[in-house]
């Protein structure tokens, strides 16, 4: 579980650090031993508990049974489960098929020119995220460039690049892994595949 005041504050600061410095990895921790079972990474549910409340909606992208997690999120945070094209937060569980993610990526909210903030924030699970790798990041928050390695397929990165083409429209991503690490890629970040194109 989570200390709703101090743990959430610490988690938020890590998220903010990583969001303002795309590619920089932070580790999320809670100080209270968890007694509840979550069928997602610790970093995923800590992010959920820190950012969700009754004012936001979410959508889980997964090929497995997701009813329990949906129910658990709603009970803990009062956030509403919503269709992919309305959700403020999109949660991609680890092991989700590429095609399922691509479909969600194509239909989620990216905001409009008057209200670019009305865009989905993606929480995407990875087995492991690594600072340094085959993805070259540049843009605000990054001094020149930085590289990272994710488990996400190139076509998902390309689909993401498609959706951020018309800045300020786009999606912001929080990537989590099994070791409680997070890394963020806001819509301002340009991602290039090493040895390839955008």
């Amino acid at each position: 579980m989570i200390d709703v005041v101090h743990d959430m504050q610490a988690v938020f600061r890590k998220l903010l650090h990583s969001m303002s410095r795309p590619g920089e990895v932070s580790t999320l921790k809670s100080t209270i031993a968890h007694t509840d079972r979550w069928s997602c990474h610790e970093a995923t549910y800590l992010t959920i508990l820190t950012l969700f409340d009754a004012e936001v909606s979410f959508h889980i992208v997964s090929n497995k049974q997701k009813k329990n997690l949906e129910k658990q999120i709603a009970e803990y945070t009062l956030a509403r489960n919503a269709p992919i094209d309305e959700a403020d937060f999109v949660i991609v569980l680890q092991g989700t098929k590429e095609q399922t993610i691509l479909e969600a990526m194509g239909t989620c909210k990216i905001g409009n020119l008057l209200d670019p903030q009305h865009a989905a924030t993606w929480i995407v699970e990875n087995e492991r995220i690594v600072q340094e790798g085959n993805l070259i990041l540049s843009g605000p928050g990054i001094q020149q460039q930085t590289t990272i390695q994710l488990d996400i397929s190139d076509s998902i990165i390309q689909a993401r690049n498609e959706r951020i083409k018309e800045f300020p429209l786009g999606i912001d991503m929080i990537l989590t892994d099994a070791k409680s690490q997070v890394l963020c890629i806001p819509r301002t970040t340009t991602i290039v595949l090493k040895g390839g194109t955008q």
Partner: peptide
């Protein structure tokens, strides 16, 4: 209250993602 903080925190993350907006 923690609810107010959550809303402000979400807003800050959006603000960082859309610099100057």
């Amino acid at each position: 209250d923690e609810g107010s903080k959550k809303e402000i925190r979400r807003t800050i993350l959006k603000a960082v993602a859309i610099p100057g907006y």
